[in-house]
Design a protein around this nucleic acid. Sequence first.
RNA 1: GGCCCCGUAGCUCAGUGGAUUAGAGCAGCUGCCUUCUAAGCAGUUGGUCGCAGGUUCGACUCCUGCCGGGGCCGCCA
Length: 579
Amino acid sequence: MFNIRQSLELIVSSAIAEATGLADCKAHVIYSSRPEFGDYQANGVMTVAKQLKSNPRELAARVVSALQENDLIADAQVAGPGFINLFLKDATLAGAATRFAHGQQKMIGTVESPQRIVVDYSGPNLAKEMHVGHLRGTIIGDCLVRVLETVGHDVIRQNHVGDWGTQFGMLIAHMESLGENSAQVHTHLADLETFYREAKTRFDQEPGFADLARGYVVKLQRGDPACLQAWKKFIDESLSHCENVYQRLGVTLTTRDLMPESLYNNELDGILNSLRETGLLTVSDGAQCVFLDEFTGKEGTPLPAIVQKSDGGYLYATTDLAALRHRGLNLRADRVLYVVDARQSLHFQLAFAIARKAGFVPANCSLEHIAYGTMMGEDGKPFKTRSGDTVKLNELLEESVRRAHDIVNGKSPELSPEHREQIANVVGISAVKYADLSKNRTSDYIFDWATMLSFDGNTAPYMLYAYARIKSILRRQGEGIVHPELSEIRITAVEERNLVIKILQFPEVIGVVAAECYPNYLCAYLYELAGVFMRFYEACPVLKAETELRASRVTLVSLTANTLKHGLGLLGLETLEQM
RNA sequence: GGCCCCGUAGCUCAGUGGAUUAGAGCAGCUGCCUUCUAAGCAGUUGGUCGCAGGUUCGACUCCUGCCGGGGCCGCCA
């Protein structure tokens, strides 16, 4: 894989080894903070010098003279207390960019040792319609999955939908009482949220209904065929709602990725037996619990993970343990990612710890809670409608598209209505997704229409505009005038150089996102790429340049377009040729 | 009481493994469209990076304590 930073890391660290006789010294190469400090800088020498109790500047000088001949580094200078500032060779940069533009080399290469990575994301509760609370996990998870696949990992998506539990008794009772006709059922379930609310109201108010509902839960759990059939009908309907939202959002999840909670039902007894056999199980107040020394609860009391209620019922901890075992032992995952709300952090700490102690996952399997924060309203409180209801995801998307439509109508009245509608669709959906992806996933964020639909700043509309502007150049130069796949990219101006370097850093960023699971790094990179392009665009005429320079610049523009599109695609965003 | 997260410009947010002068966007002010989409670009105003210590050649970043905000902690998921 072409990765400037990795290459520099190798070159400089072997020079450190050469200069010191020590193996495994990190060069610690990062981007330079300012242009005069070079393109990259190596900071590792100072750490090594400290270990050796030697003068860092002298050591840095020795490392510089020990640098092997290579085609990447044009100049290496010792600076400050012992930094090594690295200046890259234009010819090498231009050559690499040209190879990418010609398609001779893929920008994103594959990792040397692909892993099997299970990614658990989205996982809506099927009792209700998808709402804004499901957005972040779905969007972030889908981005991570795309990135991990692109770098060559074997990714297994797991949509751990909530299709089991006490509230389904209530829903089935309500559905059954409305009649058996499937067409009617479909009509009634068209608005799942209302259906849920009706059932809940009856559960709370209507005499006898609650008992009926509880009866259905028991029947359901015993496997009563009629009850299961009704349940299945409900689940199918709810799933098709999800499918619609996924399709609208452009999420890659399909029915093949479904791994509903109910599929683990038959394994829960086994999970309990295993825990008992390994001596992890303790009875406390009639419930089956696992206590681990490293976890304490209120007032320093031992913290239980309840795996079976005193009435014999199982809980989500039990199901999650079954899921962990499935992923660890059956799917043989090297890495399992849980893209789940940060508030469940403790639950996963417990589940992971228990799963390891019980041997449900191999010791070398990495279990990671990819936590994300809550979406807040403008008041800084969890995002709700004015009346205090949860906001349906479908309605949120609709409103975003509608707002985008208003903007497009205002800015581009010359386009056909159909074209404007298509643009509004992409802008509206992208705005919502990008707003989410561009923020650090661990923090709560404030949902704000004006910011996310703005064309200024790190937003989807800006990114899409940048792309459309780039494509406009390529369109205007006409077919067959310059062949980007045949022309050489040359570096003749600092803006071109900056653009080339930025493009070549794409694989580095992808590598970081794949390792650390922060999509906002990719957004920040693409925003910078768009910005660097805009500066190039202002400073360097493309179509008016002389023949060879023009060919070079068109090729560079084309490569920029491909990189932007590729990156936005990994975020799960569509692009527009024209805006 | 324990554990987790957060505190960076008036607002919304970045800041990869420690590094030289802490960055964007909005809001405010100022320039640039007979020239590839001005939905843009450039400039400018604005910060004791919650507070106090510590480690270090060097701390927004690491450690400790404190203050402030949020979250989680036995039969929901």
